[in-house]
Simulated assay, not measured.
Amino acid sequence: MKEQTIFELIHFMDKVTDNLIIQWNKQFNEDLGISHILVLTHLLENGKSRPSDIAKSLGLTPPTLTHLSEKLVKRNLAVRVLDESDRRIIYLDISDKGIAMVHKANKEGVALRENLFQKLTKQELEQLLKIYEKLNGAL
């Protein structure tokens, strides 16, 4: 494969991702970004977690996670919890309001993807799925 073709492919993959994020942000209208929802989703799936563990899992810097968690706590979507055996350790946990927000975000995401992928034929969707499965396996 030509080098230019590889860069074109990466460029278009990034453009699709960027445009999906832009469209999701327009539709979601909750003054929260994708990163906020990723943090809440991590908490929903993994339970209370140390901020450093969340940052590492999501590939974020600790200062970025601090900034994100401040907004989540301020909006009552997450809570800080002290470790009972070592009060120096602080965990972040999702609230009921945060769980509802994750469900709302996922619902918006599903609608956005359905709208996008309906532009493809069934055969194109099957090919795309196989391609992404293969690429994911190679990584």
Rank of each mutant, 00 (worst) to 15 (best):
M1C: 09
K2P: 10
K2W: 03
Q4H: 09
Q4W: 07
T5F: 10
T5I: 08
F7I: 03
L9P: 01
I10F: 12
I10Q: 12
F12A: 04
D14S: 10
V16I: 15
V16W: 09
T17K: 13
N19A: 05
L20W: 06
L20G: 05
L20D: 09
I21V: 13
I21K: 15
I21Y: 12
I22H: 14
Q23E: 15
Q23A: 12
K26P: 01
Q27K: 12
F28G: 01
N29S: 14
N29A: 13
D31L: 07
D31K: 13
L32P: 01
G33V: 00
H36C: 05
I37Q: 00
I37K: 00
I37V: 13
I37R: 00
I37E: 00
L38N: 11
V39F: 02
V39C: 07
V39H: 02
V39M: 09
L40D: 01
T41R: 13
H42E: 14
H42L: 08
H42T: 08
L43E: 01
E45L: 12
N46C: 07
N46H: 15
G47R: 03
G47T: 03
K48H: 09
K48L: 11
S49N: 07
R50I: 14
R50L: 10
P51Y: 04
P51V: 09
I54D: 04
A55P: 02
K56Q: 14
K56G: 07
K56T: 10
S57L: 05
P62R: 10
P63M: 06
P63A: 07
T66C: 01
T66L: 06
T66P: 00
L68A: 02
S69V: 15
S69H: 03
E70R: 15
E70I: 15
L72I: 04
V73Q: 07
V73T: 11
K74T: 08
R75G: 00
N76Q: 14
A78I: 04
V79H: 05
V79D: 13
R80Q: 14
L82T: 12
E84K: 13
E84N: 10
S85T: 14
S85L: 09
D86L: 06
D86I: 05
R87E: 14
R88C: 02
I90C: 04
Y91E: 02
L92W: 02
I94M: 04
I94P: 00
D96V: 09
K97Q: 12
G98Q: 05
G98A: 02
G98M: 00
I99A: 10
I99K: 15
I99P: 02
A100C: 02
A100T: 08
V102D: 02
H103W: 10
H103K: 14
K104W: 00
A105L: 02
K107W: 05
E108Q: 07
G109W: 04
G109F: 05
G109Y: 03
A111V: 08
E114Y: 08
E114K: 13
N115H: 11
N115W: 03
L116E: 08
L116V: 12
L116H: 06
F117V: 07
F117W: 12
F117A: 01
F117Q: 04
Q118N: 13
L120T: 02
L120A: 08
K122I: 12
Q123M: 08
Q123N: 11
L125Q: 14
L125S: 08
L128T: 08
L129Q: 14
K130Q: 12
Y132G: 05
Y132N: 11
Y132I: 11
L135P: 00
N136L: 09
